[in-house]
Design a protein around this nucleic acid. Structure first.
Lengths: 175, 175
DNA sequence: CTTGAAATACTACTACG
DNA sequence: CGTAGTAGTATTTCAAG
């Protein structure tokens, strides 16, 4: 009951001069494999092969190719945040003082080091950045807010949206 | 085939006065396992056991227990959005018409069905909900916006923040 | 209650057709 | 892509701290 393994083989140039397209021609079976692995990657390769109606070696070859190509970025365990003591989620909108490349670069470098920071994105609109941060409770968030967020470089304003209820949080999207 | 047996977690009074904390007494080895599996869950159990300095069966039992307890919610493959044709990310703030339980429930039910919706959360502040949506490009987002988002039940206002650059996006947090 | 060692069953993996 | 064979692993059983 273990995840599918990858023997990092070196088969750079494909058999038939693969396309320059980053996503290389996903057929129906590849998509079925990806859908399954997005839901549960802990199934054995033989079970996966049966599900997509393929022989085990052929299935394994496809999975390896999908990992090699970078389409599968990795296989990871998802931890329940609450059970792990990070049950609070906060979404933060950030406005910087100045809109210079240096200012952005400096902020981004520091933002990634904020403990519990799950996401950080440059956005259009009234904010420069949106960040999502996981922390234990409101006390620990207040501490984080006072000791770290307010001292992020070049920050003019921080607006916090505390998450009251997580309706949906998924890592998989339609293929 | 691999029927995992559950030893009903009746180990309240652990070895050294465990915390009453809902996260049940993760010792150093459990945390090491979780840290590893958050980074890469595709390694074999023997490799994991060696890394945490445990025998293979003992390690496997711990992993099973962590899955049973729900602390490991699942093991999944992470797909590269861009390579899979969902390279655009949009964060959406939603304000509802009325703040009634029915209104919230109806919206939540519909929001989860929006294709590409990755996250949806109730938040404090000037919005009722934040959603993040993955889609192919601005065209497909405009279509989604015009055909689905504007018709979500009970919506008064939708404000879209398009993500220009993804600085950080992770599924793992410190333990 | 947990660990570790040995034995079995299954799987990944590597040929080759 | 599929079949067959080998090597390695997961998984159970059992004994012991």
């Amino acid at each position: 009951m273990n995840a599918i393994k990858l023997r990092a083989a070196s088969r750079a140039a494909g058999p038939t001069a693969a396309q320059a397209d980053p996503r290389q021609a996903l057929d129906r079976i590849d998509r079925a494999i990806l859908r399954q692995l997005q839901n549960d990657a802990s199934i054995s390769n033989v079970a996966l092969a049966a599900r997509v109606k393929l022989s085990a070696p052929a299935c394994l070859r496809r999975v390896e190719r999908l990992k090699e190509s970078g389409l599968i970025r990795g296989v990871v365990a998802l931890i329940d945040p609450k059970a792990a003591g990070a049950g609070m989620l906060v979404i933060i909108g950030v406005v910087l003082d100045r809109s210079t490349p240096e200012s952005f670069a400096e902020f981004e470098k520091a933002a990634q080091k904020v403990p519990g920071c799950m996401e950080c994105h440059v956005v259009t609109g009234e904010f420069d950045y949106f960040m999502t941060i996981r922390t234990r409770d409101s006390d620990s968030f207040n501490r984080l807010h006072a000791e770290q967020l307010l001292y992020l470089p070049g920050v003019r304003q921080i607006r916090s949206f505390m998450v009251l209820k997580e309706i949906l949080s998924t890592t998989k999207f339609p293929l």
